[in-house]
Every structure is written in structure tokens, then in C-alpha cells.
């Protein structure tokens, strides 16, 4: 499973990197970015889903 942020949709609401700082970070403008290639482990998937459920812009995608 992999997580990604669509940069066209992300508006820098800042929820992802607050909720799951191990998975997401922010760039110089405050937009969310995925750390590394976004591969999720069984430990991190729940955090990624929680971030997804808190993104007001629906910019986070979790894919098989």
C-alpha cells in the first residue's frame, strides 16, 4: 500500500503532517508532502488513513 498527496488538490491545510509526522512532512510553502516513496507498513497504515479522514481538501490517496 502506498500513500500520495495530489499537489493540485492540496492547499496546505496542514492536517496530515500534524497527525502523522512519520509519514508526511511540509514544504517551504506549508503544503503537505509524503516522506520517501509513501510505502505504508502495517504499523503506519492506520495513521495514514486517519490523516486522510482529516484532510478537508480530500487530497490524500491510499492505493494498493
Amino acid at each position: 500500500m502506498k500513500v500520495r498527496i495530489d499537489p493540485e488538490i492540496c492547499q496546505g491545510q496542514g492536517r496530515c503532517f500534524s497527525i502523522a509526522p512519520g509519514i508526511f512532512d511540509f514544504d517551504d510553502l506549508g503544503n503537505g508532502v509524503v516522506i520517501g516513496d509513501g510505502t505504508l507498513t502495517s504499523d503506519s497504515i492506520e495513521q495514514a488513513r486517519l490523516a486522510q479522514l482529516n484532510c478537508p481538501e480530500h487530497a490524500i490517496f491510499i492505493e494498493e
Binding site: 491545510q13 478537508p56 481538501e57
Partner: peptide
């Protein structure tokens, strides 16, 4: 509340 997609800071390009 665990899932909270609130719009307090607006939505879209004017966040």
C-alpha cells in the same frame, strides 16, 4: 472526534 474534515480555515485556494 477522530475524523474531522472541518472547514474552519476555508476550502480551496484561499485556505
Amino acid at each position: 472526534r477522530a475524523a474531522n474534515r472541518h472547514a474552519a480555515f476555508g476550502l480551496g485556494i484561499h485556505r
